[in-house]
Amino acid sequence: MSGMVEKRGYGTWLTHAALIVGIAVICFPIWIAFVASTVTQEELIRPPMPLLPGPHFFDNYLEALLTGGVAPVWQMLLNSLVMALGITIGKIIISLLSAYAIVYFKFRFRMLFFWLIFMTLMLPVEVRIVPTYEVVASLGLLNSYTGLILPLIASATATFLFRQLFMTIPDELTEAARVDGAGPVRFFIDILLPMSRTNIAALFVILFIYGWNQYLWPLLITTDPSMNTVIMGIKQMLPTGDQTVEWPVIMATAMLAMLPPVLVVVGMQKLFVKGLVESEK
């Protein structure tokens, strides 16, 4: 810690004070959203709005969950959960398998396959949005969980990560397993998977947030309100000409939409930091 070389006293207090100011600036938008979700519409449309929470917490959150906008928020949360878990688990499984094949087998077209997969790194869904939409539409996957999930699980990042990890696992282990008569499937299940446990968990945190926070893709392919995810559903609630949904309900929805990924990040902070640092390597 560089604190060691600092003089104690004013300096330390100033540092703490500055940090607290910084945190206050960063937390301000959330505080405002939280306060707005506990008051009435009348209090919000007559500025200035209150800066301390009001008594309407349960009214607003219940209205959001049960009525919401075009669809109740509980349904949108459920759709978000299915999509986030589908993307996360799907990505992890297909990446584990392909990384295993690429590292532990010699076969024809191995490097070609590797480069084909690697190239997906270069194309976020936002870039190829129109043609991907057409492909999914022509496969009849609009308004389906499959359509929400499948196009987003094609990504090279996880494959890359597992490849790096497998490379660091000593050959002696494989040798020993082979001497013991373990085939490739046994080796994968009994040795490789347990050894990758923390990496899988770390990746899970990152991918869950990625999946939960998807916006453009669900916006395009879910025209049926019952398939809306919460991140895109909230946009539908924003007032455009004819105001229908009230701000306290919108802000309650925003709080609900943030809660799962924020809980994951804060609750699994160590894994999250590990996953973040590794998936960017």
């Binding site: 960063i26 959203a33 916006y215 991140i231 909230i234 924003l238 919108i250 925003a254």
Partner: peptide, 21 residues
Amino acid sequence: TLLIWPYAVAPAIAGVLWLFM
């Protein structure tokens, strides 16, 4: 802990929060 959680906020939600303010 207090500084890392905005990472988990979706860009669209960030938009809604700032739009509101």
